[in-house]
Amino acid sequence: MKFIVEDAETHLQIKVTEARIDAAIATPFKDKLREIVMKNRKPVHLDMTAVDFMDSSGLGAMIAVRKSLPANLKMVLCAMTPNVERVFRLTRMDSVFDIRPEAIHKEARE
């Protein structure tokens, strides 16, 4: 389970590298991501570009991570692929998360 984490001062940028968030990995995915967001106590921007598929257990994991953040810290989901977006839309969870179509803006770092 690998996440690419960057601290962007105002928030934490996390790139999900798993192509599938399904029943095979939902529990370790949730545990690892929750550990990262709890440790940093910042709003979270998740880059979902690499995720091709997510099922209801993956959705459950995302909701669990969202719930582990205090209400004042946002969780933004960026650049979801159509198959992932469908799961959020059909379950109405698109109203619970802050969903943005664009990829995370990469600031020049050099």
């Binding site: 099922d55 209801s56 257990s57 909701i63 669990a64 719930k67 799961v87 969870m93 619970v96």
Partner: peptide
């Protein structure tokens, strides 16, 4: 305040 984490499968 207490979002469901499951129960979506059969709905989908």
């Amino acid at each position: 305040e207490d979002l469901p984490e499951g129960g979506f499968g059969w709905f989908l």
